[in-house]
Simulated scan of single mutants.
Amino acid sequence: MIANRRDDHVRFAAEQHRRPGRYNQFDDVSFVHHALAGIDRSGVSLATRFGGIEWPVPLCINAMTGGSAKTGLVNRDLAIAARETGVPIATGSMSAYLADESAADTFGVMRRENPDGFIMANLNATASVAQARRAVDLLRADALQIHLNAIQETVMPEGDRSFADWGPRIEAIVDGVDVPVIVKEVGFGLSRETLLRLQEMGVRVADVSGNGGTNFARIENDRRESADYAYLDGWGQSTAACLLDAQGTGIPVLASGGVRNPLDVLRGLALGACAAGVSGLFLRTVLDGGVPALISLISGWLDQLESLMTALGARTPADLTHCDVLVQGGLRAFCAERGIETRWLATRSRSYSIIHETIAGAR
């Protein structure tokens, strides 16, 4: 049953991303253009560091699949693309392996095809410490993702209905594994309150994974005979909203959910993310065009990221947090209701310049 469900997930997710592009709240974020801000491209680096983790680029192939013969082949292709482009990669949930060791190779193929890459194992919040260690050991994983998916489980016909012990289990796993733990949503967003709670648990990094990308409530509803949860289609917060909500929490955050192009990556970084993750679009690309198509797409994104950072005057991904951005539309309305000030973002480069001029003068 798990294998069939994984195949359904891939099929429905790919179908979602073959539909015409929809608005998401990244469209409410725009850069203020400063025509003389540009620098030399030779001085730009895509490397990013956060929570004890170092990546050569601020982009990853995020958690998607595994657990069946078909999805094992998808994981193989994704791992090859990650190897050839140097981007980090995450498996889908490894619960299938924990339930049946015969599924091990559908996940282990990632390490076999990408022996030196940064690979993240992925489990749900019901896992024990022993299970978390098994997942990390199978992949020789560099980090462990724990996904939060209460809404998906609620809509899933065979899903969990007990969520009260998720927090204690996450805290135990953080203490019980030897790799960084990244807690992520699956497309409904992490609120400020959730991020602060995760920080108290000792979680090093959070992936806000807001709505706007693959919609697992819709996927699970499509699997129901009556499709009676259609009204949850817009549940949750967008990735852009979550990033603004996260300001000042002190926990490094990643941006996934609704990332459609290099500009969305830049928007996420400018709003405080350390890196961005992409799932559905990369899945559709590898299914439709194979490994060469995905390698070409990712390589193109990395090239464009470097070019756009050059034009914006950002030497590193972190420097994008000093670029002026405008927050408008529905995203601005969300911020007003949550008490988040956004006007300062439109002129923050001035403060940054004054600080650096003061430091230079003091020297």
Rank of each mutant, 00 (worst) to 15 (best):
R348E: 03
R169Q: 15
A141W: 10
L305P: 13
E54H: 07
G290M: 05
A141E: 07
I295Y: 10
A132H: 11
S226R: 15
I151P: 00
A96F: 06
L232W: 08
D303A: 11
R260V: 00
G290S: 05
V74H: 05
A143L: 05
G167Y: 10
G248E: 11
P292G: 13
M94L: 12
G167V: 03
A318W: 07
L59K: 11
A275N: 11
A127N: 09
L266Q: 02
A246M: 03
A3C: 06
P180A: 11
A164V: 12
I298H: 01
T214M: 00
S299M: 01
D178K: 05
D207E: 06
L190R: 00
C242L: 06
A276Y: 05
Y231M: 04
D7M: 13
Q199L: 14
G257F: 02
D28G: 12
G361W: 08
G117Y: 08
I359E: 01
I173F: 02
P252F: 10
A13S: 14
G212W: 00
G21V: 01
I119L: 13
V203S: 06
A273I: 01
I295G: 09
W344N: 14
E84S: 13
N221Y: 03
M156F: 02
E337T: 14
P180H: 00
R49L: 02
G277T: 00
G290I: 03
D228G: 01
T85V: 08
E171Q: 10
A273P: 04
T249I: 09
T321P: 07
P262R: 05
A104P: 14
G313A: 15
M120F: 13
M1C: 09
L294R: 04
A318F: 09
S307W: 06
G212A: 07
A127D: 14
D137F: 08
E54A: 10
L331M: 01
V179W: 07
I340S: 01
I295K: 11
S256T: 11
D178E: 10
A314W: 03
D8C: 06
T91N: 00
D40M: 14
R192Y: 07
N4E: 13
L308A: 11
T65F: 01
N124G: 13
A270R: 12
K184D: 14
E337Q: 11
S353Q: 05
A130P: 00
A125F: 07
A121R: 15
A150K: 00
R111N: 12
D319F: 05
E193Q: 09
A336T: 14
F216A: 08
G277W: 04
E101C: 08
E153W: 15
V32R: 15
I182W: 03
A135L: 05
A311W: 06
I170R: 13
E200H: 12
R5K: 15
L123H: 09
L263C: 07
A35W: 05
D245M: 04
S68M: 08
A227Q: 15
L46Q: 13
S95I: 13
